[in-house]
Design a protein around this nucleic acid. Structure first.
Lengths: 343, 343
DNA sequence: ATTTTATCCGCAAGCGTTTGCACAATGTAA
DNA sequence: TTACATTGTGCAAACGCTTGCGGATAAAAT
């Protein structure tokens, strides 16, 4: 039951030439005569020779595999991102070794370990929600496995990353609401520590002050993304003394929960209260009251860009000009963009 | 910039013993004395030795990698399935090489080719919607790369597969509606050729006749899953001479489109017309009128089972008892189950 | 004292490829 | 004729690891 696949050696013995000649012939090496070249290629095709990649990987110390670690594939953002990753990877003949951390730090470490063992050439990571310690990433330096982070970026210096700037989109969202006549605009933001949360807040403050609406902190609430906390925040906003006529929510899921809560409180959606959100998920097409608009974060593009820069990094490494310590770090930032839903 | 990672050789020379002794010491081989064993392990830990897996893969002719080819990760079914796959794989120390066919036959072939090149130990495949030719699967025999199909199964004999039987769930769905008093029950089914479509129909007919409601073919319409065709089918059903009071739809997305269409036609959902569906997607929680119930197909479980049988197959292969041609084929069938949504 | 038996260890082959180097043969310029 | 490219080919090492086999040493049995 052995894998008796054809090897270079077989071709060589059958043709009575040396293995190296066969190898070179198949690679179209110039130093091989045309006659032997065709003879070899002919036979190779005939017996369906295919090089043993594992041997090549080993010999070249390169696997043409990139590892991807992300929190949760069932989130539309990430499943879209991985499509971008895959497409970009395949275009350069890389394959994708995938793993989900499910937002567990432990799992994340394990995954990094497996990826390391499998000698992936590079790594694409979107860190878990709970990761605060970054040693396991830094340990990879030793193996000279480059990492490109995307979307969820650790807060350490000297890393490559691709992210989407939420400030701009947030400003657009506020302006959109302002143009529609809203003057009291609330926000249900995400967990306080998340950079994503901070960026949204920053954009909010920026836009509000620019619009000469003063920034009222009581209109900005944090939630932990659970349905309960979203409902609580919604209720608090809608019963506060300054009742907003529009609310910007951390993402589409939050928006949907908030809508439900508002309805339960007998508010008329899009009349008494409007919602604008982030993510632009397709599912919002099916809901009774989708947010009026969503800030798009371009996950596919993020995945694609991240992969491209990683592959770029990898080819640089090959050119061995990485000797100098003045390594430059890629910081690629896409601009988010408000997508208004046509009703 | 070479990868100067520690190797067995280094340990060997530093300790003035042979490479083979080091290897055995690290594997706790009984023929190595306790003293040298500890010395070796000590040093190994100290210099952070880690075996070069690519070398091992090559040497052992095994990569501990399983390839997964599926149509579309952004479909909740598959992102859930891959979680099951991942979890089961990791449990047995396998990793997952992933690729999406996006329902393109060409892409599917390419992916199989890459997987083959990467010498995955085995393959998990859910075939693309458009695959009718199965040669590219059979070509894998030559490499003795076992395949386990899941959910979307090709119609060829002698394959391993894991699937979910829709008949039972469909019967449950019809019975559920019957119990609620519905007597005229329509169906918006999927593309005619799909096995999934046929199973649903079979269950429908079975349940209807068992309930002594005669099977009326004009109540069963096919659609190609696009919004337009769903709406057309819905309209046709709701304007037909025998107007159904309940409709079973091919999946939740179809249900949502159908609901929209019915609303547009001024039908009161859950009053004039009820919906029951398949898939049980979480998003239905957020919609105004989710289907009353959904037939669950247990994607996570399917993925898990498929992986387990594949790994089982792989270990059998190792035991080299595959000599005999009387190979048995795994046909694992899960039963679908109706999940009634609590309102 | 001699043979047997553990116990411990090293040699070397092999996995399939790539590639620097040397060598042979042929042709070309001095 | 001699020297020198040019072209075509093979040798052998290297990548890092596993493993069958045989050899050494020491302890135990005869």
């Amino acid at each position: 039951m052995k894998n008796n696949l054809p090897t270079l050696k077989e071709i060589a013995t059958q043709l009575n030439i040396s293995i190296s000649t066969v190898s070179r012939a198949l690679h179209d090496h110039k130093s091989i005569g045309l006659r032997t070249k065709t003879r070899v290629q002919e036979l190779a095709r005939q017996i369906q020779y295919e090089p043993n990649q594992t041997a090549i990987f080993f010999q070249q110390g390169k696997t043409f595999t990139i590892g991807v670690i992300l929190p949760e594939l069932s989130e539309a953002f990430f499943s879209s991102a991985i499509s971008g990753i895959e497409d970009a990877a395949h275009k350069s003949n890389y394959t994708v070794l995938m793993g989900q951390s499910h937002d567990s730090v432990e799992k994340e470490k394990q995954l990094i370990d497996t990826m390391k063992k499998h000698r992936v050439d590079g790594l694409l990571i979107s860190i878990s929600k709970n990761t605060t310690n970054y040693e396991h990433f830094e340990a990879l330096q030793r193996y000279s496995i480059p990492i490109v982070f995307f979307d969820r970026i650790p807060k350490i210096p000297n890393i490559h990353y691709v992210a989407c700037n939420m400030i701009n989109g947030t400003v657009q969202a506020i302006n959109f609401l302002f143009a529609k006549g809203h003057r009291i605009i609330g926000m249900i933001n995400g967990p306080e520590k998340l950079p994503a949360t901070k960026e949204r807040l920053e954009g909010y403050i920026l836009a509000m002050t620019k619009s000469r609406l003063k920034y009222d902190p009581s209109l900005v609430l944090n939630c932990d993304l659970t349905k309960e906390s979203v409902c609580a925040a919604t209720e608090k906003l809608l019963t506060g003394k300054r009742r907003p006529t529009a609310i910007v929510t951390f993402n589409d899921y939050v928006a949907l929960d908030a809508v439900q809560q508002a309805q339960k409180m007998k508010f008329k959606i899009n009349k008494d209260i409007c919602f604008v959100s982030y993510a632009n998920l397709p599912l919002t097409n099916y809901t009774a009251y989708p947010p009026l608009a969503s800030v798009e974060q371009f996950p596919y593009l993020q995945g694609q860009k991240a992969t491209e820069t990683l592959i770029d990094l990898l080819s640089q490494k090959n050119n061995a000009l990485a000797e100098n310590g003045n390594a430059a770090y890629y910081k690629i930032i896409l601009e988010s963009q408000l997508m208004v839903h046509n009703k």
